[in-house]
Nucleic acid binder design. Structure first.
Lengths: 353, 353
DNA sequence: GCACATCTCACAAACGTTTTCATAGTTCTT
DNA sequence: AAGAACTATGAAAACGTTTGTGAGATGTGC
């Protein structure tokens, strides 16, 4: 039915080993037989059987991606970037969604580990121990989390919070509410501490609204709390939450940004389409996915391209990377990608009180 | 290193063939040896090697999904539903994004066909011929497209348009603009014709704004055209487009829904969070993904569950299914899923002119 | 002109599983 | 009690590939 390596060998008048080596580009095969074999192979439309190859090499042709929620735009962007890069490598992307559920994540990880030997974990809820154990058996790359010496790609969360805070301070806000993400989230911890660090010594008061599940429902609750807190601005853990906040505020007829300003994090595609358009910290989600793949495929190009991203508004150093690296218990082989505040309509001068 | 079937066989004191049969649940193996083998196998943490299994059975353990754009919420929802269902079957989901590009889609299809033998194509741009040829070699299921006798799952597009139109008519709109999707899109063709059918004989004028690429940019252009057309309502091919329209109208300071009403299609998660919240036709995207998997895995449960979906507001028959099936050149084994208009703030009484 | 290095290729062994076929043991039938 | 029918298991082939090893051929140096 399908053409195998034997068919090619017979047609080219060589043995299957020669075919295999010729197609692999091995140097030990003579140039003209190599060309002949290659020509015959495309003539016959030969495609190596992946299963057979994987069986003997032990090396899989696909890499896995685990995300907490595909319906969260941030993760679908990461997925898109990851999948794109994977495909250009001639590999395939296997994906799994954990529904933001810890126990579900365990089982997904186990199931996926049986299928792929390399995987990317986007913002996992799993415990450090589980992750480290997993890292022993299969090679993994973390997205938005740093742990031990597992390779990782993260946004410069602390710097993002610093940018957002500076912006709000410049607008005269002196009482700012933070609507946090899930307590188990590494990025929430980093963002929260980054905010605290940036606020230290400045004339501003940070009100902690608590932890919310990212998603509209969480945002609704956060909005009411923010109003009650008397803050003139609310900084959300991510855009999902910020969207919920905006929705609830509109529902209650609260003027944004007249009465209260709102800042998100991630810059999901819809952020700029809202009314008012959401001021948010842009994280290069697609690029994170792509970089994670590169890290996984061999850290060769794991450094030096940081500056090549976007507009790169001059100063992007600050305390960000160092601070981020300090967490997680140890130094990790992490790529820290720069983030950039997108100022839009949802933030304005603080109202005079 | 890893435990193979041989290790289990040795530990259980049987041959590998018995282990294979015992784990497969074959009836010919004695109950107590079966149990013993199974116990030993979990003790040793045995996991069958997928590559080896696939090599001998020829049946792959993963199914592919091709989507035009993962960053489009509709497709990430389909992906989520598909992936979920796939995982409960013990299979894995391989995905690929074509960036809404026809030539890219060709190459993605070819690459994926080499890896999986069963795939789901969500709203492909490929030509009928390419698709039919592909269907010969691998078993496929289409989402949002009907062609020949290829199994498919589609939303009841025509009925959705009918619902939207009825709603707008009830609000007094008599001149309604349609912002279409890409000309190559099957669903756009069906929605457009569904709209025409529903409008026939009613006291309403449909203004065709043309074809737009789904995405914010297209929406912006459509908004300006809609205003110029003098229509009191604009019906968008999908929510992506509607979002762009809303954004542009807000930017131009046009009152929605006071001056003009906007209706979308798909009901992506953000639709209800916008200000004004978007009136749109809800399509069960996740469920489409799940149903596509079921269709692919053997049509057994391919019928009879249509009504089990959502609130199911009584009448849902109408001209929808029949009309939809009429297109595509032949009768297909298609599951038509009911859709339901979600009335929100973006539609209101037509202004008196 | 012969030994020896070098190059090119074929043979064959793995990889871990499923599945067909054969065989030993067991129960049934007469 | 003996052959027949049946049951449970084992041996071995096959799936298509990569790769280590060895053998023939070709060329080089003396």
């Amino acid at each position: 039915m399908t053409t195998t390596i034997h068919d090619v060998a017979r047609a080219a008048g060589v043995s299957i080993s020669t075919v295999s080596r010729a197609l692999a580009g091995s140097a030990v095969v003579a140039p003209n037989t190599r060309d002949r074999v290659r020509r015959v192979s495309v003539e016959l439309g030969y495609e190596p059987n992946r299963a057979a190859r994987q069986l003997v090499t032990g090396q899989g042709q696909s890499i896995g991606l685990v995300v907490p929620d595909l319906e969260n735009s941030f993760y679908s962007s990461v997925t898109k970037g990851m999948q794109n890069r994977v495909r250009t490598e001639g590999l395939t992307a296997v994906i799994a969604d954990t529904d933001e559920d810890v126990s579900r994540e365990r089982e997904v990880l186990a199931q996926l580990a049986a299928v792929v030997d390399r995987m990317i974990l986007a913002s996992p809820r799993s415990s450090d121990e589980d992750l480290l154990r997993l890292a022993e058996r299969t090679s993994i790359v973390l997205v938005n989390r740093m742990l031990g010496d597992i390779p990782a790609v993260v946004g410069d969360n602390a710097d993002g919070m610093r940018q957002a805070l500076s912006h709000l301070l410049a607008l005269g806000h002196r009482r700012i509410a933070y609507a946090g993400g899930p307590a188990t989230s590494w990025s929430d911890a980093v963002r929260r501490s980054g905010l605290a660090t940036a606020a230290a010594g400045r004339d501003v008061e940070i009100v902690d609204l608590g932890a919310f599940r990212p998603g509209q429902a969480g945002g609704l609750a956060a909005a009411d709390l923010a109003l009650a807190s008397g803050a003139s601005a609310v900084l959300a853990f991510n855009d999902q939450l910020a969207l919920g906040v905006l929705g609830r505020l509109a529902e209650r007829g609260v003027d944004v940004p007249g009465r209260i300003s709102v800042v998100g994090f991630d810059d999901v595609p819809v952020a700029r389409l809202l009314a008012p358009a959401l001021t948010t910290v842009a994280v290069p989600a697609q690029r994170m996915g792509a970089v994670a793949v590169e890290l996984l495929l061999g850290g060769r190009d794991g450094a030096g391209r940081d500056g090549a991203s976007g507009g790169g508004r001059g100063r992007s150093g600050g305390a960000g990377p160092a601070d981020a690296a300090r967490r997680g218990g140890g130094v990790t082989a992490a790529r820290v990608l720069p983030v950039e505040l997108q100022v839009r309509r949802s933030t304005a001068q603080a109202p005079v009180s």
